[in-house]
Design a protein around this nucleic acid. Structure first.
Lengths: 105, 105
DNA sequence: GCGTATTGCTACAGTAATTGTAGCAAAGAA
DNA sequence: TTCTTTGCTACAATTACTGTAGCAATACGC
């Protein structure tokens, strides 16, 4: 897959940051990755296991996007972890846990 | 497109509700739809306009999913609006607005 | 040195999801 | 009737994702 043009973000045609963010979070596995990294950094393999064996192709793509967005970083000794900004975003996703349990179906 | 098997939710293989919710929200336009309905109900056409002319095929699919999930409902006089549960979920998405503006790029 | 196991990452073909355009039936207003 | 709007769908083209396999680089024990 060709890499996305620099700086360009799908869905941000209006220029409103919220649209770019909603679009980024609305891609498959993005929210899940943030969720799985909520406690500790994970290696790419561990992350894949946590994400129900999702294909490394997408995971790699999402990780690149999340890194370019400044939410995720690759630590020195390997392993992906949340940046301070990413942790802040994750804090907004966490409450979904309790909501989901009340929601059930 | 064939309709999804009843009750089955993609990404919920573990049975954990949070996974089903993250997967639902991780589909294209889902978060955006919740965002656009945050203030008032919109007709399908108005929603499409708000969503940057997204194809009615996906919007219809997402609206059906959101209705089955109990987050969105079709009012008597036409027009899609959030249910109380959906409004609650929307409350958790709203803070992303301010976050996105600080995030920018 | 050697093998072996890990790291992050990529190629490739097949499949599923999304797009873009066009159009439908039903309900209401003129 | 005609015109307009409602929610909704068909269809082919395009894009995104899956599943499997494998790469180079690094680090282990031997």
């Amino acid at each position: 897959m060709a890499k996305q043009a620099s700086g360009k973000v799908r869905g941000s045609r209006t220029g409103r940051p919220i649209m770019a963010l909603l679009d980024l979070l609305g891609r498959r596995w993005t929210l899940r990755i943030l969720w799985e990294l909520r406690e500790e950094p994970l290696t790419s393999r561990a992350l894949r296991t946590a994400c129900d064996e999702a294909s490394p192709t997408v995971l790699q793509a999402r990780l690149t996007e999340l890194r370019e967005a400044g939410f995720v970083e690759l630590g020195d000794g390997g392993g992906y972890g949340l940046t301070p900004l990413g942790r802040e975003l994750c804090e907004m996703v966490m409450p979904l846990h309790r909501f989901a349990e009340r929601w059930q179906r």
